[in-house]
Design a protein around this nucleic acid. Structure first.
Length: 552
RNA sequence: UGCCUGAUAGUAUAAUGGUAGUACGACGGUUUUUGGUACCGUUUGUCUAGGUUCGAAUCCUGGUCGGGCAACCA
């Protein structure tokens, strides 16, 4: 195994801990999504990091749903998250829920009250916000801070028993109202929400806040390395404070910079807006940066894992170019996807000297990158073909290697042809191209001695199948739509979806399967859309091929 | 005005006091029945000003710039 990639800073920490014999060398990470939305490529980074660490250091990873806010959460999201993590290729050790710990968390809160380190506050949200001060002015304590342990115990029990309406009271940790760290100014631990929870039903009407659920859940599970994103750095002192006061297992929090991808948005709020306002087809629209969107677009789990490996892990803010994601999927698909011919923008080609009614069967290897071609398939050839409109130029420029009047080109896996004439309609658009073919130039036994610079793809007009193809482009016109003036939706690319209703493909493509990508030669990688029917096949373009030809 | 973070080619990421390297991109070339792939080459960098040191991207001091922090969200 030549793992030549250097360690990222978290791997260094883990290796340091193992070397120091910390936790007996045990590594237990967790991936802790809140089930309030679909996973996106940013989550993939966290997933690959957490699961990857465990794999690398003989550890395990728990999947834990951070379901402490019932008003936002739903089983729909739980199910999609599990599907996406599995699809990415990872197996969790345990499927857990913060809500599994509601009893324990309640007991821990009571414990803190007994220690005189938590109190029930009757203030309104607005009052509490004012009393907290600002980053530059210290907060001030209120009269509730001095309630007796007994009173707090009773009030907290009454909160739990449903004696108070939403917002009437909260439980707060007694830390330091004057701390320069806002999160330490007596943070809220519990709030009242008479809301049905997707797992605990109506058992509870008080729910713990993130700060009093996350670290405690980590400790209960004895997570060794609790990895989150940098915006949680200010929470770390609180994370440690609760664990220390309650003498729990000392899980440690480490932070890395979240992924930013250009030409898209990554916040759940914004993604939800795109879905709800109908700017996209749903969470799995192929233009979405969600895992399910990328899957429907034709991305493979391996390509996403490779991407996450390549972007690295550090603490500084970053903006990754989607070009890297595209590179990763091309690299993967080049080695695995079968080649097929499809004409996206068809124009009729007639071979004048080829016998009418004659059909020949040619064949082509499935994948030239694989030893032996990975098998082959057959396709028919005839007098009338479809070729790409832009593979013909009536008056070709000097560096044009395709078909033109007087120009010769090879039809992939078939004959060399020479452009002869065109037929145009009243508007001057070319409706037919006429050519002649060189009978001795048949692919495989070419005795013509002719060398041509270009090869183009084609399909037989008599045998081609018609399918729909959807071409996708970036969803936004600017690199960082969330950071522009005005609404991010003002920057949506109006041409992000281009539907080609009539694309001619070689007959074998009726065997295409959802989840099995193919390369349309010279055009890109495509995948069958999940909503295809036998009568109407729909292909999504995953990504174009790299185009090294720049028109002069 | 405060606190917490961070700063290395266009982008991302290494170098852990000792030759600033890698990948993607861009550009050029070779091969090619995909203007793809593969292969080769070129290109561009340590935020700034001082200091310590034989030697600083790395350590120290000051500054500049970016991000985060005042949800009964996570």
């Amino acid at each position: 195994m030549s793992e030549e990639r250097s360690l990222n800073f978290i791997e260094e920490i883990v290796e340091g801990d193992i070397a120091a014999g910390k936790n007996g060398g045990r590594v237990l990470t967790r991936f802790p999504p809140e089930p309030n939305g679909y996973l996106h490529i940013g989550h993939a980074k966290a997933i690959c990091l957490n699961f990857g660490l465990a794999q690398k250091y003989n550890g395990k990873t728990n999947l834990r749903f951070d379901d402490t806010n019932p008003v936002k959460e739903d089983v729909e999201y739980v199910d999609s998250i599990k599907e996406d993590v599995k699809w990415l290729g990872f197996e969790w050790a345990n499927e857990l829920y913060a809500s599994d710990y509601f009893d324990k968390l309640y007991d821990l809160a009571v414990e803190l009250i007994k220690q005189g380190l938590a109190y029930v506050d009757d203030s309104s949200a607005e009052e509490i916000a004012i009393q907290k001060g600002t980053p530059t002015e210290p907060g001030v304590a209120n009269q509730y801070r001095n309630r007796s342990v007994e009173e707090n115990l009773q009030l907290f029990a009454e909160m739990k028993d449903g004696k108070y309406p939403d917002g009437a009271k909260v439980l707060r940790a007694k830390v330091d109202m004057a701390s320069t760290n806002m999160h330490l100014r007596d943070p809220l631990m519990y709030r009242i929400k008479h809301t049905h929870h997707h797992r605990t039903g109506d058992t509870w009407c008080i729910y713990p806040m993130y700060d009093f659920a996350h670290g405690q859940s980590d400790a209960i599970e004895e997570i060794t390395h609790s990895i989150c994103t940098v915006e949680f750095i200010p929470h770390r002192p609180l994370y440690d404070w609760f664990i220390e006061q309650l003498a729990l297992f000392p899980s440690k929090q480490y932070e890395f910079a979240r992924l930013n991808l250009n030409y898209t948005v990554m916040s759940k709020r914004k993604l939800l807006q795109l879905v709800e306002e109908g700017h996209v087809d749903g969470w799995d629209d192929p233009r979405m940066p969600t895992i399910s969107g990328l899957r429907r677009r034709g991305y493979t789990p391996a390509s996403i894992r490779e991407f996450c490996e390549r972007i690295g892990v550090a603490k500084r803010e970053n903006m990754i170019d989607v070009g890297l994601l595209e590179f990763c999927i091309r690299e993967d698909l080049n080695k695995t996807a079968w080649r097929r011919m499809a004409v996206l923008d068809p124009v009729k080609l007639v071979i004048d000297n080829y016998p009418e009614g004659k059909t020949e069967i040619f064949h082509g290897e499935n994948n030239p990158e694989v030893e032996g071609g990975d098998g082959s398939r057959e396709f028919p050839f005839g007098r009338e073909l479809w070729i790409e409109r832009d593979d013909f130029m009536e008056e070709p420029t000097k560096k044009y290697f395709r078909l033109g009047i007087g120009l010769m080109v090879r039809l992939k896996s078939a004959y060399i042809i020479k452009g002869e004439s065109v037929v145009k309609d009243a508007d001057g658009n070319i409706t037919e191209i006429h050519c002649s073919y060189i009978p001795e130039s048949q692919s495989g036994n070419d005795t013509s001695g002719i060398n041509v610079k270009g090869t183009i793809h084609w399909v037989s007009a008599d045998h081609a199948k018609s399918v729909e193809v959807r071409l996708y482009d970036r969803l936004f016109q600017v690199e960082d739509p969330g950071n522009e003036d005005g609404d991010f939706k003002d920057y949506i690319n109006p041409n992000s979806l281009h539907v080609l209703p009539t694309v001619y493909v070689e007959p074998d493509l009726i065997n295409a399967k959802v989840g099995t990508p193919v390369q349309f030669m010279r055009k890109g990688y495509f995948t069958l859309d999940k909503n295809s029917t036998p009568d109407k096949l729909v292909f999504n373009r995953t990504v174009t091929l790299k185009d090294g030809w720049v028109k002069k």
